[in-house]
Design a protein around this nucleic acid. Sequence first.
DNA 1: ATTAAGATGTATATAAGATGTATCTTATAT
DNA 2: ATATAAGATACATCTTATATACATCTTAAT
Lengths: 145, 145
Amino acid sequence: MQLTRYTDYSLRVLVYLGMKTDGWATITELAEFYAISRNHLVKVVHHLAQQGFINTLRGKHGGMALARAPGLIGIGDVVRRTEPNFHIAECFNPTADHCVLGPNCRLKSMLNEANLAFLGVLDRYTIADAVANQGLLASLLPGPK
Amino acid sequence: MQLTRYTDYSLRVLVYLGMKTDGWATITELAEFYAISRNHLVKVVHHLAQQGFINTLRGKHGGMALARAPGLIGIGDVVRRTEPNFHIAECFNPTADHCVLGPNCRLKSMLNEANLAFLGVLDRYTIADAVANQGLLASLLPGPK
DNA sequence: ATTAAGATGTATATAAGATGTATCTTATAT
DNA sequence: ATATAAGATACATCTTATATACATCTTAAT
């Protein structure tokens, strides 16, 4: 059981932005910092902007910043809007479900409850919580331009 | 976020065995009932036997049965022992972790807490709970030989 | 001895996910 | 105005995890 790297990267982008004192960054800067594919990050950033988590600006001196204070961005919310699906078992996916047990099986409701518990925990935290020890993290960042 | 089909099938095998009044079944019977790959099921069954959830018998009139009463087989236990990993994010996998934030990031502990909550819910249920409406399920089964 | 069942190891196919390439659009500094 | 630095978008490809298939071995009942 794992989240996609897409979701992982989404969270990391938001954490990074929460870490920066000026809150402003470019995709290239992020890709270099985390040493991950810039091309992939482009899509992550684009999606985060579509979902309203960040604001982006094209053109010279463009970049991105959090759209709200870090304390107002819930981790559960990010995961829910980023993870492609929560088809814990086959029966969660209407277009792929072939299980003959159907509604007679109680596994589905158990797994659903577990999934909600998972997200419920994440709903108790925000990006601000993830960045709590800002001092240490800041030391990893490149200095001010 | 989803469990592997391997885990899904493992649960279905146990549910099926819990459903049958005599508690005895063969791989072929299971593969036909669920209309899934027999070859894949072979491995699922083998693993369930290794983990002590079922007893198997080779040879003529062989097959499998639950090793304990359905009420003593916890769903969480099955999922934990069947799902190949719980690497919720990259940083959970020691051999693949490249994230520069390392221990300075609090996302990991949040995600871990969420994962434990997920399994915690499943720990409250057993195979017996999954089979609760035995009457309905029994009607789906082939009649006594 | 034969047969029906599971055990085991290896190989292959499939699908999802991650990444790469190319091109387009927008903003702004000069 | 124009050049340039950024993000936006579409498409192609590579990689890997997962699922499935195949072949052979082992065991037990008849």
